[in-house]
Amino acid sequence: MNLVLHVWRQKNNSEKGKMVRYEAQDINPHMSFLEMLDVVNERLIQKGEDPVAFDHDCREGICGACSLTINGRPHGPERGTTVCQLHMRHFKDGEEIYIEPWRAKAFPVIKDLVVARQAFDRIIQSGGFVSVKTGSAQDANTILIGKDTADKAMDAAACIGCGACVAACPNASAMLFVAAKVSHLALMPQGQVEKQKRVLNMVRTMDNENFGNCTNHYECEAACPKEISVDFIAQMNREYLHASINEKR
């Protein structure tokens, strides 16, 4: 198949970027989207041009590195799928495809399609953990967790930290990301002791990192490659309310 790509090119953080048109010919429909870009890049290098920079690593949908907005949708048109797991068979021959980086103030562009997502790490630093030193734990089966609770916590914990939720949100809010971690730990007995401090600190850090607020568009859930539910945002709001009332007391 033959495609026309419009790709965001930006030399570095300080220079302005622009969309550049490339023709991608003889593309095999069984290729993944990133393999298609590999082919385009190989051809660019051969021509002596600068290849398109994009983040990627595991290429099996779990590391969360890949981060392309395709035709305006983070991770492209397929639901519950990262770009690395998106295959060209979902596109039509002759289609024009627009490829952009995550767009959010909190995720500055480093080069082309590569953005900095350290803000997510800083949010985790502020409370996304259980403070247990290595060696302090008791026997694992002394903590009983019902299967339903464990399953629900796992649903939240499945977040891969890719940032598609932020990129999809008209406010560039990180609520789904933060809610997933807050809920995962708040659901489990291990997370109880620190749960109030955790939610307050994580939400404050999120606010300080230039993420926007949630106005219930639910675009985050639609874009999430792990299909994490916005119900967890409700859970976080409840945890936050509870914690902030207690804090004032």
Partner: peptide, 17 residues
Amino acid sequence: DQCVAQGVPFAREYAGY
């Protein structure tokens, strides 16, 4: 033991084990 204490959501049986 360590991973469970950290909150790793391992698979459970219905009784919680």
